[in-house]
């Protein structure tokens, strides 16, 4: 945690994520759609693992009902 380039930046970010995830829940959006993890740019395997794990969580939730229709979808 204390290795952030912006000194204590990720401590602040973590607190904001705590608030935001609860706010999403309050607005009726599954809070699993938001996640914050600390992965260094030198930790490629960890990053891949994180993303794969996140995808496994997201897939059952399906696309967000708030997703905007892009012009491609409409056509």
């Amino acid at each position: 945690m204390s290795e952030c380039n912006y000194l204590y930046g990720n401590y602040c970010a973590e607190k904001r994520v705590t608030v935001l995830s609860q706010m999403l829940d309050f607005c009726g959006i599954e809070k699993d759609r938001l996640r914050a993890r600390w992965v260094s740019s030198a930790e490629a395997p960890e990053f891949v693992e994180e993303i794969n794990e996140f995808i496994d969580v997201l897939k059952p939730l399906g696309p967000s009902p708030l997703k905007k229709q892009t012009s491609k979808d409409v056509a």
Binding site: D25, F26, C27, G28, I29, P65, L66
Partner: peptide, 15 residues
């Protein structure tokens, strides 16, 4: 009161 509603109800309310 809002927290006591279930997730989908909250969603449609705020949407």
């Amino acid at each position: 009161d809002m927290e006591d509603m279930d997730l989908s109800k909250r969603f449609s309310f705020w949407k």
